[in-house]
């Protein structure tokens, strides 16, 4: 499989394409009417592409760009839901919603929860998926079967998986039965200290298969000769791991970190269902859960929008920083 060019290059290509000099300087009367030439100048050499891309462009405009703009608008106004047909004033309130969000103890707690989530989820995911991918990257019996086992949780609905985990980690569930006296009291999902780590472990388990596949792809791109050369040079397996494998899969590792942050910023189903609406005292509440609870249940969409905008900016900032770091490294 040909190597996919890095995103920066793609972006440059894509943007350069749009700046492309679309019309050549031609002496008049070279076989094409002025109208078609003008059309090509405005629409590009293959205007049919606009027709092909139109439905998707429309989708982006209506269901991404416009809502994003609306979110920003709502976040700067006092906004609440009214009965249909009732029109109320929605005064501009400046940064008031943002101030409210950033001083809200529940919101700050949810950010802390995400931090806890990341601290557990990222290292665990990286270590386990790299280990399992390395083990899979060989001609071993039942390879396809193992692989299938690993990604099955990824493709299964979180609602279904949460049901099983509830069953297993419930007070007096099978996990408690196995652990006996070592089991935490109160039980995992209703324990202030264990609610968020439980979610982090659950998400690690659920997503791991996908990351194993990513690492596997990256491992298969590491030239075998590098391992052979390292072996000949007398490197131990540890050295081979450290100086061949890990550098070889670095892009995937950064990608996993990035995706983990996005997943963290996105958590909803798990805190809502697994820990019954955000855990004891909101110790497993996530920002999106608060957006739902405050924005829709409690009818403060302005507050929730501001929280959403902050999260979008946060995610884009992190993506940007990560890209920057990656570029500096290469």
């Amino acid at each position: 499989m040909p190597e996919v060019p890095p995103l920066e290059a793609e972006l440059q290509l894509a943007t350069r394409g749009s700046e492309m000099k679309l019309e050549a300087e031609l002496p008049p009367g070279t076989g094409e009417s002025r109208g078609t030439r003008l059309a090509r100048a405005v629409l590009g050499p293959q205007p049919i592409g606009m027709a092909f891309g139109a439905p998707y462009a429309l989708f982006i405009a209506v269901l991404f760009a416009y809502p994003l703009g609306l979110a920003v608008w709502i976040s700067f106004h006092s906004y609440f839901f009214t009965a249909p047909g009732v029109s109320v004033a929605r005064p501009f309130v400046g940064l008031a919603n943002y101030v409210a969000v950033l001083t809200d103890s529940e919101v700050l707690r949810s950010f802390l929860n995400i931090l806890i989530f990341l601290v557990i989820n990222v290292p665990l995911t990286v270590a386990l998926s790299l280990l399992l991918a390395t083990a899979l990257n060989a001609a071993i019996p039942f390879r396809a079967l193992f692989r299938a086992c690993f990604y099955v949780p990824y493709v299964t609905a979180s609602v279904a998986m949460v049901a099983v985990w509830l069953f297993m980690f419930n007070t007096g569930g099978v996990v408690d039965s196995v652990l006996g006296p070592v089991a935490p009291v109160p039980s995992w999902l209703v324990n202030q200290n264990w609610a968020m780590p439980s979610i982090a472990i659950y998400v690690t388990w659920k997503q791991l298969g996908f990351f194993i596949l990513l690492y596997l792809a990256a491992l298969q791109n590491v030239p075998k000769e590098l391992y052979e050369a390292a072996s000949i040079d007398g490197a131990s397996w540890w050295h081979r791991l450290w100086s061949v494998t890990i550098p070889g899969v670095r892009t995937v590792t950064t990608l996993i970190t990035l995706l983990a942050i996005i997943v963290g910023a996105n958590l909803f189903t798990e805190p809502y269902l697994l820990t019954a609406g955000g855990g004891p005292n909101g110790t497993s509440a996530s920002p999106v859960l608060l957006m739902y609870q405050i924005g829709i249940e409690q009818n403060h969409p302005d507050f929730a929008s501001a929280l959403g905008v902050i999260l979008v900016i946060g995610v884009l900032l992190i993506v940007g920083v990560q890209r920057l770091l990656q570029r500096n490294q290469t």
Partner: peptide, 30 residues
């Protein structure tokens, strides 16, 4: 295909891939 707006469409797609849908639930709901 090379057409006017391809770069914009591509960048929008990347942006859409990066911004989680969940963060837009409020305006989408509205």
């Amino acid at each position: 295909l090379r057409f006017r707006g391809r770069g914009l469409l591509f960048v929008s797609m990347l942006l859409l891939l990066m911004v989680p849908f969940q963060l837009l639930i409020i305006p989408l709901y509205v």
